[in-house]
Write a protein that binds this DNA or RNA. Structure first.
Lengths: 395, 395
DNA sequence: CGCGGCGAATTAAACAGTTTAGTCAACGCG
DNA sequence: CGCGTTGACTAAACTGTTTAATTCGCCGCG
């Protein structure tokens, strides 16, 4: 039982005992019948029907079979039909991986997020993006590979090895191109962005990276918020922004919003201390806590600007729970203008951004780059979409 | 002295550095400059550094290079380090697709949804699942391939082009296993599920499919809701369930909830007409419309049971907008007990389900199946998690 | 009659890795 | 001295496709 081969195989990834493991040599598969323990369902590892099997059965060359699928006009009608019939009978299915290896096309795009997936997926804006991207991928018969850098980065690749280098990580993903959301200059992955051979498009990211970038006018939007609040007479502000729970991950658009707001306040002649930064989680149900953080500040603000609508909506419901009136006791402004912002009570003042066209443009550009219909040089980058303030009753 | 080992040790001389190489990576951006415009960008197709290149450069066999990565202890420490150094200098990155072809492992799982991605991603429960699955995949160094099975629906049930044969579609996805959410018996893909060679696990799906299934007690939960409402004296009900916008796609858990509720009402001796079915979109901001649909019924109900919390929360805000009192004018009950349910006003009565452990169990099982640590026969299926009613102020 | 071109199918070389089955020298042991 | 083992490494065979180059009749044309 303890054949030397097995001992040598100790190192295999997910180690298991040698039975059932390598069905490779078709003859020896049955000989293993006597390995009693852990007899696996054999049916699963039935040998796959390959293109070559079809060719043999149909009495043609493998190339002909390939042509039958990919270049029908190279074959006579009769031959083609015969081949397809044979394939059908044998239950042949082309092997996607082998095809990818030969063609260089994976028919998948990588959607990369700097934080944990868990975190990103709680942001309605991101899931909305994901939906748009998904729709585009459906149309192009592509798939989305969702990957988070967050947990992977500090891990060890092998026992005794170093942490995974971003570039290594990136090139281990079998995608034709990448879409990155919310990536900052300080993120280790930016180095990989520059070096990558495959097209990369950035969304809501830093504006000075060497890749086509699609941003919105965060600064201007936030600036307008401050002007609006100043005009309403407010002089003490809070900004609710990302909780520093995810060390090292910075969402650049949030930073720009904070800057835009602060700048307007400063230009109005108020001291920097008039703006206090507070951390709020980007989950609606954490709103009460976020509200408390604001309400218990020593210099209590009269208005709070949230870098995202979820935070604002959370704070809104936190305030309601405490029986406070918005906007009389506290004005609340969000950013993003989610559909829910219109439905809240009171309806939320927010910075409107086009949630559809921007991700659509980004994904379309990515596909064009992948298909080499355009080159990166053709793209004016960063592309910045307009934002505009929508004043509602919360301010 | 002239032993081959020594001759091979040539490389010990570190000063013969082969730097300046980087044949692939850098520079490509600059080289493109001199191509006349309009010329297709060829530079991207610069030849990739392969394992064989590394082997040649390091003076070892390709096997040795492979071993350096995958079977370190087959090599002497010195050789291994030399190989890795060489690889680093050349900028070598293993080709994930080639590796997959040879090993049969893709290190990815497919997450398949019956509807369009757009639709599914608006459901907070699903995005929560996605987060959990993402976390598990991060741990296993796997990736998620997100794919919508919408294309496989027959033409008459959906806008768009020719349907793809389900089995063909499934086998075109390069994943080691699949997790399907919300799949019903009637879905064309169920046939493919049975035929698949790769492990499949189902979540919140039909209970009579030939694959490990992880469901919750939808029937019992809904039954308890009806009992609760009956005890409160209600006699006229509405059930708000999925809008039939996505024709052909049936979410089985919703069906079970409708059945469970109806059964309890029936057992209480009321006529079937005491329960009216209303369609409501699973988006919060569509709540007002959904509310109207209920409020304008000829036989106006005094209580509404929603098959999901998002629907209930939407209706809640719709009712508030009309100035109605919940629960006095209308009692509202949800299903799922999202975190937001606790924060709504009034707090929402809902059927609690464990949102974490069920998807975690499913994904863990899937990985065990992929790694052949267990077989399908070992799994008691369907696995059904408990639900329990949480009464709050909305009823 | 020779020649070019075409349609239909084939051969062989990629694609970029992994794994099997060795080789070869050194070592241990009775 | 012969035999079995081990450690370090390699040659060759795989994984399942695509595709460039080629063959081989056959037809029309000058």
């Amino acid at each position: 039982m303890s054949c030397s081969a097995c001992r040598r195989r100790r190192w295999r990834r997910r180690d298991s005992n040698c039975n059932g493991q390598w069905p490779v040599v078709s003859g020896s598969k049955l000989d293993r019948r006597d390995l009693s323990q852990g007899e696996r369902v054999l049916s699963r590892k039935r040998k796959r029907v390959t293109l070559r099997d079809v060719a043999r059965q149909a009495g043609v060359s493998p190339t002909a079979v390939s042509f039958a699928y990919n270049a029908p006009h190279q074959l006579s009608q009769a031959t083609r039909e015969h081949i397809l019939d044979t394939a059908e009978q044998l239950g042949y299915q082309p092997h996607p991986v082998a095809r990818t290896l030969a063609t260089g096309r994976t028919n998948a795009i990588g959607l990369l997020v700097p934080t944990s997936l868990n975190w990103m997926l709680h942001d309605p804006l991101f899931t909305h993006f994901l939906g748009e991207i998904g729709a585009a991928c459906d149309r192009e018969e592509n798939r989305i590979i969702l990957a988070s850098m967050y947990e992977t980065l500090p891990r060890d690749l092998r026992p005794g090895g170093e942490p995974v280098a971003p570039f290594t990580w990136l090139s281990s993903i079998a995608a034709d191109g990448f879409l990155m959301v919310g990536i900052d200059r300080s993120h280790p992955l930016t180095e990989a962005v520059q070096r990558s051979q495959r097209p990369i498009v950035l969304l809501d990211s830093a504006s000075d990276l060497q890749a086509p970038t699609f941003n919105i006018d965060d600064h201007g939007g936030a600036y307008a918020v401050a002007q609006h609040l100043l005009a309403k007479g407010h002089r003490e502000f809070a900004i609710a922004t990302m909780a520093p729970r995810l060390d090292g991950v910075v969402i650049p658009s949030f930073g720009r919003r904070v800057k835009g707001f602060s700048q307007a306040v400063e230009e109005a002649g108020l001291p920097p201390s008039a703006v206090q930064i507070v951390h709020a989680r980007g989950v609606r149900s954490a709103g009460h806590q976020s509200f408390q953080n604001i309400w218990t500040l020593r210099r209590r603000p009269t208005a709070v600007f949230c870098v995202s609508d979820v935070r604002a909506l959370g704070i809104l419901s936190g305030a309601r729970r405490e029986g406070l009136s918005v906007p009389d006791d506290l004005a609340v402004v969000g950013f993003g203008d989610l559909p829910d912002a219109r439905e809240s009570s009171p309806p939320l003042t927010s910075v409107h951004r086009d949630m559809d066209s921007q991700p659509q443009l980004a994904i379309r550009t990515l596909f064009q780059l992948i298909n080499e219909q355009i080159s990166e040089a053709d793209i004016a980058s960063p592309h910045i979409s307009d934002t505009r303030l929508v004043v509602r009753e919360s301010s």
